[in-house]
Simulated scan of single mutants.
Amino acid sequence: MLKNTQHLLDIMARLRDPEQGCPWDLKQDFATLIPYLIEEAYEVVDAIERNDMDDLRAELGDLLLQVVFHAQLAKEHGLFDFEQVSQSLCDKLIRRHPHVFADAVFETDAERQAAWEQAKDEERQAKAKPEEPASVLAGVAASLPALLECEKIQDRAARHGFDWPDTPPVFDKVMEELEEVREAWKSGDPHHIREEIGDLLLVVVNLARHLDVNPELALKESTRKFTRRFHYIERQVASSGRSLTDCDLYELDAFWHQAKQALKRKAD
């Protein structure tokens, strides 16, 4: 296994060789690789959700390639190499699992989670500049999908006491923000409308967190459900020899309700 890892590193170095390497690989830098890194991560997730293990093996390889590529670029700039990336990860895993690699004892999952978060907080404090004390919100990547970033930010704040004590007030806040969206819409101010929509989405994420629901996955599932129902509508319209634009909303809505029933029976 280690032989294959070294072989992979050697291949990457050869691809980046200034004289004998691949022209495309030689053109890349950290920034240009970002879209590929994100795409490969999502393709790993897709393989998992489809329960396709053969594809998962291949997609994990593609994701690993991105790690190796970035490590090679860093090595060329004298920053770090793949071995140092691995060492950093090993150190972190050992540090965050004292109940496995040291003599710490945790009686519950909550205790283990608290210790994990404390270790992360200590790491953030260590990275902070002396003149700028580390925020408890530090380290949440701004490039995350908006729902995921929002959830992580709120989790951090909640762990430090900034949260509703229970769920009912969150429902009230959702209704309050929804009414503020309505008022903004009446004002006709696009900036104000966007701001209030953002506030509504933020508190909906908070509600999802209180209900122990992953908002990113929940929205993805609902989007897929919408897609399945819309495909049903398209099939019904096509079977009548028409296009969607030939139908009024009343008819399309009727097909929508048919889709809900038909797909529910199919799922059952």
Rank of each mutant, 00 (worst) to 15 (best):
M1V: 13
K3E: 14
L8H: 13
L8F: 14
L9K: 07
L9P: 03
D10Q: 13
I11T: 13
M12S: 10
L15Y: 11
Q20P: 07
G21T: 01
G21H: 00
D25F: 14
L26T: 07
L26F: 07
L26W: 07
K27Y: 09
Q28R: 12
A31D: 15
I34G: 05
P35Y: 02
Y36C: 15
L37C: 10
L37R: 06
E39V: 05
E40I: 04
A41R: 08
Y42E: 15
E43T: 03
D46S: 12
I48S: 05
E49V: 06
N51H: 10
L56C: 03
A58D: 15
A58Y: 09
L63R: 08
L64T: 12
L64P: 03
L65P: 04
V68K: 01
F69T: 11
H70R: 13
A71W: 00
Q72S: 11
Q72I: 05
L73E: 01
K75N: 05
G78A: 03
L79G: 03
F80H: 08
F80P: 02
D81R: 01
F82Y: 08
V85L: 13
K92N: 08
K92L: 15
R96E: 12
P98F: 01
H99Y: 07
H99D: 14
H99W: 11
F101R: 02
A102T: 10
V105K: 13
D109K: 09
E111T: 05
R112T: 09
A119P: 01
A119T: 08
Q125Y: 07
Q125W: 08
K129H: 12
P130I: 09
P130W: 11
E131C: 06
E132V: 14
P133C: 06
V136I: 15
L137P: 03
L137D: 04
A138C: 09
G139Y: 03
A142V: 10
A142M: 08
A142D: 14
L144M: 04
L147D: 00
L148S: 13
E149A: 12
E149D: 10
C150S: 15
C150V: 04
K152D: 07
I153P: 02
Q154E: 11
Q154N: 09
A157F: 12
A157Q: 12
H160M: 05
H160R: 09
H160F: 11
G161Q: 01
D163A: 14
P165A: 11
D172H: 12
K173R: 11
M175N: 14
E176V: 04
E177P: 02
R182L: 12
E183Y: 08
A184P: 00
A184N: 01
W185Y: 09
W185H: 10
D189A: 01
H191P: 05
L200R: 02
L200M: 03
V203T: 03
V203N: 02
N206E: 13
L207N: 00
L207T: 00
L207E: 00
R209G: 01
H210M: 04
L211E: 06
L211A: 06
V213N: 04
V213F: 03
E216C: 08
E221A: 15
K225Q: 10
T227F: 08
R229Y: 03
R229M: 03
F230A: 06
F230G: 04
H231T: 12
I233P: 04
Q236E: 15
Q236S: 10
S240A: 15
S240I: 10
L244Y: 03
D246V: 05
D246Q: 05
Y250R: 15
D253H: 13
W256D: 02
K260E: 14
Q261T: 13
A262W: 00
R265D: 05
